[in-house]
């Protein structure tokens, strides 16, 4: 699953650590999600969207094979 968290973070000038604190996970988890190594739970994905005030589809996108 692709995501545009890095782009959204850049728009709000948020660091990985700041985003991690806002959604209650570690910086490593945000880094892994951005790198596509970890697919977040629905709850965490919705929390991330809430921070950026966008809907789920504008951040997370299914890839071929998902």
């Amino acid at each position: 699953m692709k995501n545009s968290i890095k782009v959204e973070r850049a728009k709000l000038d948020l660091t990985q650590q700041e985003l991690a604190e806002k959604v209650g996970v570690s910086r490593q988890t945000i880094n892994s999600i951005e790198a596509g190594k970890y697919v977040p739970s629905t709850v965490l994905a919705l929390k991330i969207c809430k921070v950026f005030q966008v809907n789920l589809e504008s951040i997370f996108e299914l890839e071929e094979g998902d």
Partner: peptide
């Protein structure tokens, strides 16, 4: 050290 949903998974 930092226990969150990724570590749990």
């Amino acid at each position: 050290k930092e226990e969150d949903e990724m570590i749990n998974t």
